[in-house]
Simulated assay, not measured.
Amino acid sequence: MGALTGIVLRLIFSGDPGGAFTAMKGAFVYLAPIAVGAVTVYVAEAKQQRKWSYYVWAPVAANALFVLGTMAILIEGLICVVIILPLFCVLGALGGLLMGVICRATRRRREAVYSFAVLPILLGFIPTPEANLQRIRTIERTIVVEAQPQQIWQQLHDARDIRPDEVGHAWMYRIGVPLPIAGVTQQTPTGFVRKISMGRSIHFEQVATEWRENQFVRWTYRFDKDSFPPRALDDHVTIGGHYFDLLDTTYKLHPTGPQLTELTITMSYRVSTQFNWYADSVASFLIGNFEEVILEFYRRRAVQVG
């Protein structure tokens, strides 16, 4: 019953990004898992009193079933499921404990569980102050490469036939982001453009806004309407979307010896949610991990060529 409550709430919160009843609304993200936990304990307590440990593990299990159920009926993808499940489990346990206290301390358990279930819906009508949601962060990683800047520079601009074993261990790819296939820079009438292709027919461009050969490059991102085919990425984490965006990426090469170069990558991104404290933590971890993996990828290829 708890899991079904969550699925019903998710079906209600199926609005467009930024509008009422979107699944990224704080009213859903914070309160739906609490409601799932509360309903789970309420139904169980109607049969017999449970132990305090039950108020924790049963709501956690119910929220896991709820989240997996949304994926089974194709309204959520693997990426969102993996990202949100830890938060939902913690909030679900909180809801279960609150309902357990109410069941033991009062006789108004029915009124309480109705309140838990209805409150997300009531708050779903309240508009979101979009201007206050944006959080912009910058993540930087550095590696020392046993190669000259020219060798690394060549790999940065001509990375073809990228194999899964070269980058697939990055956590963003482990949780469902399609793997990169190639990144090749071309000179166009308007400047240098790197064309990125990934699995599931994802493709976009990185436009060079600063360029110092063998030393520094800054890319901004350019997306077309068909850059992300339907279901290629979960709607809530699509790059350039309402809730997440990559702003720019820079690579800096600094020689530190005859055959040593310090390679630094810096990525700036935006998250725009009502739970930025959580979304930003996840994004920071995934992007930082990606930077470490991609730097190692360029290091290996530059060394092999050298």
Results as ranks from 00 to 15, higher is better:
residue 6 G to D: 02
residue 6 G to Q: 00
residue 8 V to E: 03
residue 9 L to D: 01
residue 10 R to M: 10
residue 11 L to S: 12
residue 11 L to T: 08
residue 12 I to K: 01
residue 17 P to R: 09
residue 18 G to F: 11
residue 19 G to E: 11
residue 19 G to P: 02
residue 21 F to Q: 11
residue 21 F to S: 05
residue 22 T to K: 07
residue 23 A to D: 15
residue 26 G to E: 03
residue 27 A to W: 03
residue 32 A to R: 05
residue 33 P to Q: 06
residue 40 T to G: 06
residue 43 V to T: 08
residue 43 V to M: 10
residue 45 E to D: 15
residue 45 E to Y: 14
residue 47 K to S: 15
residue 53 S to W: 15
residue 59 P to Y: 03
residue 63 N to W: 02
residue 63 N to Q: 00
residue 64 A to R: 00
residue 72 A to M: 13
residue 73 I to W: 07
residue 74 L to H: 13
residue 77 G to H: 02
residue 78 L to I: 12
residue 81 V to N: 10
residue 82 V to E: 04
residue 84 I to S: 04
residue 86 P to E: 03
residue 86 P to Y: 03
residue 87 L to Q: 04
residue 89 C to A: 14
residue 90 V to Y: 04
residue 92 G to W: 05
residue 92 G to T: 00
residue 95 G to I: 01
residue 98 L to T: 13
residue 99 M to K: 03
residue 101 V to S: 01
residue 109 R to S: 12
residue 110 R to K: 13
residue 113 V to M: 00
residue 114 Y to F: 15
residue 115 S to Q: 02
residue 119 L to D: 11
residue 123 L to T: 07
residue 124 G to D: 06
residue 125 F to G: 09
residue 126 I to L: 12
residue 128 T to F: 07
residue 130 E to G: 10
residue 132 N to D: 15
residue 132 N to L: 15
residue 136 I to S: 13
residue 138 T to F: 05
residue 138 T to A: 06
residue 142 T to Y: 02
residue 144 V to M: 14
residue 146 E to G: 10
residue 146 E to N: 14
residue 147 A to S: 12
residue 148 Q to T: 15
residue 151 Q to M: 15
residue 152 I to V: 15
residue 156 L to N: 03
residue 163 R to T: 05
residue 165 D to S: 10
residue 165 D to I: 10
residue 166 E to W: 01
residue 169 H to S: 10
residue 172 M to A: 07
residue 174 R to C: 08
residue 176 G to D: 02
residue 177 V to L: 13
residue 178 P to L: 01
residue 181 I to E: 15
residue 184 V to A: 11
residue 184 V to W: 07
residue 184 V to R: 00
residue 187 Q to G: 00
residue 189 P to D: 01
residue 189 P to E: 01
residue 190 T to A: 15
residue 192 F to S: 09
residue 197 S to K: 13
residue 197 S to Q: 09
residue 201 S to F: 12
residue 201 S to N: 15
residue 201 S to H: 13
residue 204 F to T: 02
residue 205 E to W: 01
residue 208 A to Q: 08
residue 208 A to T: 08
residue 210 E to C: 07
residue 214 N to G: 03
residue 215 Q to H: 12
residue 216 F to G: 04
residue 218 R to W: 04
residue 218 R to D: 02
residue 218 R to Y: 10
residue 220 T to Q: 04
residue 220 T to M: 06
residue 223 F to D: 14
residue 225 K to F: 11
residue 232 A to G: 02
residue 235 D to L: 03
residue 235 D to A: 12
residue 238 T to P: 04
residue 243 Y to D: 09
residue 243 Y to P: 05
residue 246 L to N: 11
residue 252 K to H: 14
residue 256 T to A: 06
residue 258 P to Y: 04
residue 258 P to R: 03
residue 261 T to K: 00
residue 263 L to E: 09
residue 264 T to E: 09
residue 266 T to A: 14
residue 267 M to K: 07
residue 279 A to S: 11
residue 281 S to W: 14
residue 285 F to N: 06
residue 287 I to M: 06
residue 291 E to K: 08
residue 292 E to C: 09
residue 296 E to G: 14
residue 296 E to R: 14
residue 298 Y to R: 09
residue 300 R to E: 08
residue 302 A to Q: 00
residue 303 V to Y: 04
residue 304 Q to H: 09
residue 305 V to L: 15
